[in-house]
């Protein structure tokens, strides 16, 4: 298992929920929890993943997502069991939409 942490600069977001959770920790899937973080203009990401050696891919996928969404002021916790980058981006999008009061 790899434990990774990242920080990205991001525009402040306007949360409408205290927390949101998407996905399940199962083969090829992951859970994404978004809660309030400590920095209004930054996003902290903490990852536990069963797939070792993929830190550069996580960095790229998360930086891409952070560049496209106002994630400032959030803390993202991820438990992963070998999800592909596309699934990671999908779950991040679902969780962030719920956090900001989108669907559901």
């Amino acid at each position: 298992m790899d434990q990774l942490t990242f920080q990205f600069p991001a525009q402040p977001c306007k949360p409408s929920a205290k927390a949101s959770l998407c996905g399940v920790v199962s083969s090829g899937n992951l859970e994404v929890l978004i809660t309030q973080g400590g920095q209004p203009n930054g996003c902290e990401v903490s990852i536990h993943t069963s797939a070792r050696g993929f830190a550069p891919i996580w960095q790229a996928v998360l930086a891409d997502f952070a560049a496209q969404h106002a994630l400032g002021g959030t803390a993202i916790t991820i438990n992963d069991m070998g999800a592909t980058p596309a699934v990671v981006t999908l779950r991040l999008g679902q969780a962030f939409r719920d956090y900001c009061g989108g669907a559901q």
Binding site: M1, V24, E31, H48, T77, N79, D80, M81
Partner: peptide, 8 residues
């Protein structure tokens, strides 16, 4: 402890 990711 078994080096496996848990669920929250």
């Amino acid at each position: 402890l078994l080096d496996l990711p848990g669920a929250l």
